[in-house]
């Protein structure tokens, strides 16, 4: 169980609260949607749960344990913009290897062509890069996946392709998911339940 309890966050005492007393629970194999307009702290929730930000108060636990500070994190985050989530000086092969070389079946499900591996990141399109980012995040240590507007910038076909591969993988490996999006039809399609932030 991935739990966020009484999560509050602000950047400093001079800033106003981005998030206050937010509670969330995600069970293994459960897919939870987080729906709401921008500026309501959706991204902050994702970053707190994945350990990118430390909550000002409250706690995040995975199976009752706090998030590890070193080693591979069991909660992985996929960003909206894959081009920012990759070292621009690397080839795709290196980018994938950073996630401890994902399973070949996953690469195939995401239609990742082997010819991409020798390319630089700027040579692939956004949709192709996001497939690489997803593959990198779904490694053997990953228990929970947080998708923050993962396919908001992609065309419908690439969106469906990535989601089908991700859904298959998380079902097979009993991974819990938080899907952050402003698109209600997408959340209705992929999620078991949806939390609305207003």
């Amino acid at each position: 169980m991935l739990k966020g309890e009484q999560l509050s966050f602000r950047y400093s005492p001079h800033h106003s609260w981005v998030l206050q007393d937010f509670n969330i629970q995600i069970a293994p194999s459960e897919i939870v949607g987080l729906l709401g307009p921008s500026g309501f702290g959706k991204t902050t929730v994702g970053k707190l749960l994945a350990g990118y930000l430390a909550p000002t108060s409250g706690s995040v636990t995975v199976e009752g344990q706090p998030l590890p500070t070193r080693g591979s994190c069991p909660v992985q985050l996929v960003f909206q913009h894959p081009e920012l989530a990759m070292n621009p000086r690397w080839r795709i092969r290196q980018v994938l290897a950073e996630g401890q070389s994902p399973a070949p079946e996953l690469l195939q499900a995401l239609s990742i062509d082997s010819s991409w591996l020798s390319r630089w990141t700027h040579e692939l399109s956004g949709g192709e890069l996001q497939r690489i980012a997803v593959a990198r995040s779904l490694n053997a240590h990953t228990r929970y996946l947080i998708a923050d507007e993962m396919t908001a910038m992609l065309d419908a076909n690439t969106q469906a392709l990535i989601w089908q591969a991700v859904l298959d993988y998380v079902r097979q490996h009993e991974i819990g998911m938080l899907v952050i999006s402003h698109e209600a039809p997408l959340l209705k399609r992929v999620c078991d339940r949806i939390i609305h932030i207003e």
């Binding site: 239609s111 192709e128 076909n157 039809p185 399609r189 992929v190």
Partner: peptide, 18 residues
Amino acid sequence: ALWRSLPQNEFIPVPGAQ
């Protein structure tokens, strides 16, 4: 295929890439 792959339709993609 593009129309079919919308989440409110069938959400079925064509595999592969451009």
